[in-house]
C-alpha cells in the first residue's frame, strides 16, 4: 500500500510538465544556497583555516581537490542510478538526467585530477604516478568522455538510450575500485581523511570549510543538472501545449 504511494509520486514527478514547474520553483533557492556555501567555504579555505603543520599553505588545495573528487564519484553514481531507472522502468526523464550529468562529471573529474597533480608536485615530489587511486580516477574521466562521445554518435533513438545506460552500468564497477583503491593496494595516495563512520582526521577549524565546500560543489551540480535537464525537456516536449504556451509568453 505504502509502496504504491511512493511509486505513484515518483512517476508523477517524472512527468515532464510537473518536473519543469517544480524544478523551476526550486532553482532560485538552490542557487542562493549554493552561492552562500561557496562564500563561506572560500573564505574558510583561503583565510580562516590555519596552515597545516606539515604542508603549510599548500594544503589549501584540499578545499577544491576533495570536493571535486567526491563529486566525481557522486555524479557517476547518479548516472548509474538513472541507467537502472531507464533500463528497468523506461523513465524518459532518467535518460535526460544521465546525458546531462556526463559533461558536468567530466569537468569535475578533470578538476580533481589536475588539482591533485598540482598538489602532488610540492608534497610527494611528482605530478603523476601510476598508482591505483590515480589510475582508476583517470579511467573515470575516460568513462565520462566515452559516455559523451557515445551519446553524440548514437543520437536520440530509444535503442541509443539503452546502449548508453548499459555502458554506464558496466563502467560503474570503477567507482568502488576508486574508493577502496587506497585500502586494497599499496598506493602513494594516502587514505581517506573523511568517512561516514570514523572520526575525521582533520582538525575542526580546517574541517568546517571543507564540509561547506563539499556542500557547495553538490549544490553546483544539482543546480546545473536541473537547469540543463529543463532545457532538454523543453526541446523534447516542444510539440506539447504547455511548452508552446511557455515559449510564447
Amino acid at each position: 500500500m505504502k509502496q504504491g504511494v511512493i511509486w505513484r509520486t515518483l512517476y508523477r514527478l517524472a512527468s515532464p510538465q510537473l518536473f519543469y514547474r517544480t524544478s523551476g520553483r526550486c532553482l532560485p533557492w538552490l542557487t542562493v544556497v549554493t552561492c552562500l556555501l561557496f562564500a563561506y567555504g572560500l573564505l574558510g579555505a583561503l583565510v580562516l583555516a590555519p596552515p597545516d603543520y606539515q604542508q603549510g599553505d599548500a594544503f589549501r588545495i584540499i578545499y577544491l581537490h576533495v570536493p571535486a573528487a567526491f563529486l566525481s564519484l557522486s555524479i557517476y553514481t547518479t548516472m548509474a542510478f538513472c541507467a537502472v531507472l531507464s533500463l528497468v522502468w523506461r523513465i524518459k526523464l532518467a535518460d535526460l538526467v544521465l546525458k546531462n550529468a556526463a559533461p558536468l562529471g567530466a569537468w569535475i573529474t578533470l578538476l580533481a585530477l589536475v588539482s591533485g597533480s598540482v598538489w602532488g608536485k610540492p608534497m610527494w615530489g611528482t605530478y603523476w604516478i601510476w598508482d591505483a587511486r590515480l589510475t582508476s580516477e583517470l579511467l573515470l574521466l575516460f568513462l565520462y568522455l566515452g559516455v559523451i562521445a557515445l551519446n553524440r554518435a548514437l543520437g536520440t533513438r530509444v535503442q541509443a538510450n539503452r546502449a548508453l545506460a548499459i555502458v554506464v552500468l558496466i563502467g560503474f564497477v570503477d567507482i568502488p575500485i576508486i574508493h577502496y583503491s587506497v585500502q586494497w593496494w599499496n598506493t602513494l595516495h594516502q587514505g581517506a581523511s573523511l568517512s561516514l563512520l570514523a572520526k575525521p582526521k582533520i582538525a575542526p577549524s580546517m574541517l568546517y570549510p571543507l564540509l561547506a565546500m563539499i556542500a557547495a560543489f553538490m549544490g553546483f551540480f544539482v543546480t546545473s543538472l536541473l537547469a540543463r535537464v529543463r532545457t532538454d525537456l523543453l526541446w523534447v516536449e516542444k510539440r506539447s501545449k504547455w511548452v508552446t504556451a511557455l515559449v510564447r509568453e
Binding site: 583561503l46 577544491l64 589536475v114 588539482s115 598540482v118
Partner: peptide, 22 residues
C-alpha cells in the same frame, strides 16, 4: 601563500573557470 602561491592559485583559478564556464 607561504611560498606555495605557484601551486595554490592556478588550482583555484582553474576551479573558478570550470564552475563559471559551466
Amino acid at each position: 601563500m607561504g611560498g606555495y602561491a605557484q601551486y595554490v592559485w592556478p588550482v583555484y583559478f582553474l576551479a573558478a573557470g570550470i564552475l563559471i564556464g559551466n
